[in-house]
Design a protein around this nucleic acid. Structure first.
Lengths: 105, 105
DNA sequence: TTGACACGTAGGATATTCCCTACGTATTGT
DNA sequence: ACAATACGTAGGGAATATCCTACGTGTCAA
C-alpha cells in the first residue's frame, strides 16, 4: 500500500499522523505507547506511512525519531479540489432552502 | 468499510466518483462500461460508495441512476486542514531557499 | 564486554478486500 | 404472459491487511 489514499485508510495510521502533527517529532516507542496495539504492529504502520512518504525516520542514538512529512497530502488536496466546488454549490443550495424556510416564519 | 477514507482507498472507486463529477448522474451500466472489471464488481464498489454516503441511487425505470454526493468529502477536507498549514510552511521554507539561490546568481 | 534498551523484521493466524461466475428481482416492451 | 434488459446479491477463491509473539540488530551505560 504505497499510495497516500491507502495509507490514510487505517485509523491507526491517521492517528499516528495526528500525533506527529500535534507534538512534533517523536520516537517510535513514544508513539507506540499511545496505542492499544503491540509495538511491532505500530512499527509496521509506521513503515506504511514511510512508504507513502508521509513520515521520515532519523536515528538518534538508539531511538528512531519520526517526523511528519505533510507534502504528499497535497496530492489528496489536489484530488479534492474539483469536488470542493461541487459541495459548495450544494451548501449554497441548502442555504437558499433555509432562507426560504425563514421567510415562511 | 463504511467510512470515507476507506472508500477512497480504491482507485476504482475514486474513478467512479470522478466520472460522476465530470458527467453528472449516470446509471450503473454506463459506469460499468468504462471499467475493465465485471459489472457486478463495479456494482459492489458502488455499494461501498453508497455506504460511505458518497453517492446516492435513484431508480428510473429499470435503471439505477447514481449521483455524486460530495458532502462527506468535507470530512476529508476538515481532516486535511491542520496539515495544510504545515505543508505551506514547508513550501514557504523551500521558496526562501530558492530565493537565496536566485540571490547567489 | 556485557546487559539493557529501542527498535525493525519474520512468520503465522485470521479477517477483509477484490475480483469472478452464477443467480434472483424488478421493469419494460410485445 | 413472456422474453429481454438493468440491475443487485450469493458464494467462492486468491491476494492483501492487520494483528500477534518470537527473534535479530544496533546503541548505550557500567
Amino acid at each position: 500500500m504505497t499510495d497516500v489514499f491507502g495509507a490514510l485508510a487505517s485509523p491507526a495510521r491517521r492517528r499516528l499522523l495526528r500525533l506527529l502533527l500535534d507534538e512534533g517529532e517523536l520516537p517510535a516507542g513514544r508513539l507506540a505507547e499511545r496505542f492499544d496495539m503491540s509495538r511491532p504492529s505500530v512499527s509496521e504502520h509506521l513503515r506504511v506511512l514511510r512508504q507513502a512518504g508521509l513520515v521520515t525516520e532519523s536515528r538518534r542514538g538508539r531511538e528512531r525519531v519520526y517526523r511528519l512529512e505533510a507534502a504528499p497530502l497535497m496530492e489528496l488536496s489536489d484530488w479534492l479540489t474539483p469536488y470542493e466546488r461541487f459541495w459548495r454549490e450544494r451548501l449554497i443550495g441548502l442555504a437558499g432552502v433555509l432562507d426560504e424556510m425563514e421567510d415562511d416564519d
